[in-house]
């Protein structure tokens, strides 16, 4: 009927990929949603010249089949809705919105009419009957909605965390900066104080508040932080605790352990049993807990 025209032929919408490819070929705008492909299927061609259009025949048929004129509205339940102009078929959201508004508007009109008739038309809350979709299916739907919600929430949470991290980094940087600044200031103040002191000829008691902390060697010694449990004679402040004596004592044990568990060489071979070691039962504790192992 019509000659060859460019068209997007994919019309089962589960073949999204194919659809995209074809769209590229056809230089059409690619559509985002899945169900938009089928309606963009036609690139408007010239209408066929010889197409039959028998208006009279159509109208005659319409008269034949149509219900009598004065049929009450309740039999038909039809509502007409003025569709907004310029709804783009390929714009999924716009299109669906148009349908939704049509349904909503129509329903309002219809409900107005039904209310005017004073007949019950709304389902009472205690009316239970078979539904179009089964409960099992609705459960699935619910699960999906919930999981979707959860996913969105999680994504949001992650986003928030990322933001918080960024902020925290900045805060940390600010803090270190401030600390450095304070340190610098303190050093500066100490220098200043020294200078003043020098100028005043080391006069004691001139600036009372400074003179407390820097008086004598005692103060300096105390300012060094000491570890707990350090012997009073230990001048290193517990840093070299254990000392030479202890180290020597532990050395042997350490060496043995190193030889056994690693530190140099392949472990696998060393740990394997040989004929000797299998026959050697020394390692087993024969006499209960009392005997000490000699290895």
């Amino acid at each position: 009927m019509v000659g060859i025209h460019k068209k997007d032929p994919s019309h089962s919408e589960d073949t999204m990929e194919e659809h995209d490819n074809l769209n590229e070929i056809n230089d059409e705008e690619s559509n985002s949603d899945s169900d938009s492909d089928s309606e963009s299927e036609e690139v408007r061609a010239e209408p066929a010249k010889n197409a039959i259009y028998n208006r009279d025949g159509l109208l005659e048929k319409l008269e034949d089949i149509s219900w009598p004129e004065n049929v009450e509205w309740i039999h038909k339940l039809t509502v007409d809705h003025d569709q907004a102009e310029g709804v783009d078929v390929n714009d999924d959201l716009g299109r669906e919105l148009a349908f939704y508004t049509q349904a909503l508007d129509g329903t309002r009109k219809a409900f107005d009419k039904l209310q005017g008739m004073k007949i019950p038309f709304l389902r009472p809350p205690d009316y239970y009957a078979e539904m179009v979709k089964t409960d099992a299916h609705m459960l699935k739907v619910k699960g999906r909605v919930l999981s979707e919600k959860k996913r969105i929430e999680e994504a949001e949470e992650r986003k928030k965390m990322r933001e918080a991290k960024k902020v925290a980094k900045e805060v940390q940087a600010q803090k270190t900066k401030e600390r450095a600044k304070r340190k610098k200031e303190e050093i500066e103040s100490v220098k200043k104080w020294r200078k003043q002191r020098q100028q005043s000829g080391f006069a004691k008691g001139k600036d009372g508040e400074m003179d407390l902390g820097f008086d004598g060697d005692d103060g300096f010694a105390r300012s060094k932080k000491r570890k707990t449990g350090v012997a009073p004679g230990d001048r290193s402040g517990g840093i070299r605790r254990g000392g030479k004596k202890g180290q020597e004592k532990n050395r042997k044990k350490r060496d043995y352990r190193d030889s056994k568990f690693g530190h140099g060489g392949r472990k696998g071979v060393k740990k394997q049993n040989t004929a000797e070691t299998t026959n050697d039962l020394r390692g087993f504790n024969k006499g209960g807990m009392s005997k000490k192992r000699n290895g």
């Binding site: 009927m1 019509v2 068209k7 032929p9 066929a48 197409a51 039959i52 028998n54 025949g57 159509l58």
Partner: peptide
Amino acid sequence: PTLYENPFYVSPNQIRALE
């Protein structure tokens, strides 16, 4: 008898053939 024919209709077969 045919009363109406869609002048814009192209059958999916034709589309596929073209493709």
